[in-house]
Design a protein around this nucleic acid. Structure first.
Lengths: 276, 276
DNA sequence: ACGACTTTGTGCGTGCGTTCACAAACGCTT
DNA sequence: AAGCGTTTGTGAACGCACGCACAAAGTCGT
């Protein structure tokens, strides 16, 4: 079982058929039941890891406090967005000063559920699975890889990062012991759905899918997808559009792009100069 | 130069500090200059690869036409969304029938710029870089890997997927020959920015970044980021939230949450039931 | 040839996310 | 103690995107 014909890339978002927590139609959330952190927007959640990473860097550098402006710059977002994001999980900043780095790290970690240990299994130990198994960023963030599985005799039994690759046949039994919460699928597209079904049947409720297929899962199971081919195609789109713009600008030099009010986007020139 | 302490994961979107070429941005865009496909929303672009993949599967299966309903199901989206997405790049469907698979593949491919060949270089040939280099989905989609680079003597000179890994010192010279448009960065976080600067300096205008850092690039350069650690953290958030909900539901048995399936803790029962 | 059915394409309402802008809160200086 | 500069937190406006629902358009059956 190789991962070689597996892609990587993003695009996942909330499952289509369900909205999990959001009110919408039928059952409304008891809006103010718990404390803060109830209605944290998905977009915000997606950025929290970014903030956490930036904060960790700051903490290692010995920084005590940081302003929203500085942190936003480090995380590559706007300061207003950052402040609003942080406000969604409670206010832990001091006006006139900024945010206490250590406290903010703690708060974000708690909201992301990083204060507890999550067990992860990786299925499909090809090149990609191997890379994932060896990734050091897992343990440092509360994620513990507790199992590696593959079907191919070529890799079963091998030791990767201190763990022995077990045959997929042992998966169900192993799950009973190790109780992983998250499964990482790095298997070929052709078998991804089948493997996913087995995984879900064992009670794993979160799946990170690297195979270029849309997995069908029962309600209540979270799937995130990483698809490299899609990423490249999106980049290609922008490249192609850029090229088209440059072409157009060359043909119609007078009324180049409008909008910005000023002369032709510097883009065209820049591209022409840089690209060829 | 290993990629082992490199993360994978999504979250990229339009650059923050700049709006580069994106359509929706401020400018008005000379509406009718080109044909359709002018104002294709980013969200739509991000889904086009999905559609393309589903269509390819259908084509291989010999399907001639497909309805928006069927294609949407295969791609995991709503049919209305699909139709609106396709309408953004011109109408190529027949009412009462559906879309001609072959034609739609052609159209989407053109809009994504997949009709031409894009040259890709991969920098950092650790486990991840190795996996990427060996990924077969590149060539089949118009992406040609033309160069592999790394600093580590352990991998330089090795042959990976028909290409010899060259030292990073030769990068600039190689770019002059092979003129890649896209660079894939699978290097450790610590050196990612430095390497990125070199890459951008050579004229590469699109970067796919696997390192867990926010790359600073000049205007006009597109960066997409893939960050595994973030993905896991987002999954963890939902798991943690689910667990909190389950806890609350146990305490307040008023209305059980709609979400079927496993919650964080009661996992045990489900797993035990299935496994033994 | 005509009517009924199917499916696309899209106008419109709604909700979410982002951005702007500002008042409240805090520290620091005088 | 009071004023001043700084920074947070948030109310409000804007824009995008999603979903619904329907008319237009085309096919199929009779």
């Amino acid at each position: 079982m190789n991962d070689d014909d597996v892609t990587v890339g993003p695009l996942s978002g909330p499952r289509p058929g369900q909205r999990a927590g959001t009110p919408g139609a039928g059952g409304g959330e008891p809006t103010g039941s718990e404390e803060a952190g109830r209605g944290v927007p998905d977009a915000t959640v997606a950025r929290l890891p970014q903030y956490l990473r930036a904060l960790t860097v700051l903490a290692e550098r010995g920084t005590e406090t940081v302003s929203s402006e500085a942190l936003a710059a480090a995380a590559g977002v706007g300061s207003a967005k950052l402040r609003k994001d942080l406000s969604h999980l409670g206010s832990y900043g001091t006006r006139g000063v900024g945010y206490e780095v250590a406290r903010l790290v703690q708060q974000i970690s708690e909201h992301l559920g990083l204060t507890q240990r999550w067990s992860v299994v990786i299925i499909g130990i090809g090149n990609l699975g191997h890379a994932l198994a060896g990734y050091g960023g897992f343990a440092s963030r509360g994620f513990g890889v507790v199992g590696l599985f593959d079907d191919s005799p070529a890799v079963v039994g091998k030791r990767v990062n201190g763990l022995v690759v077990r045959p997929l046949a042992q998966f169900e039994a192993a799950v009973a012991d190790e109780r992983p919460t998250i499964a990482v699928l790095a298997v070929p597209a052709a078998v991804a759905q089948r493997v996913c079904d087995r995984v879900v049947a064992t009670g794993v409720s979160s799946v990170l899918n690297f195979a270029p297929v849309v997995l069908q899962v029962p309600e209540g199971v979270h799937v995130r997808k990483v698809d490299l081919a899609s990423e490249l195609q999106i980049l290609a789109f922008h490249e192609q559009r850029r090229a088209a713009l440059a072409r157009a600008a060359r043909l119609v030099p007078g009324a180049a792009p409008a909008g910005r009010g000023t002369s032709g986007e510097p883009e065209a020139a820049a591209v022409a100069g840089v690209v060829r």
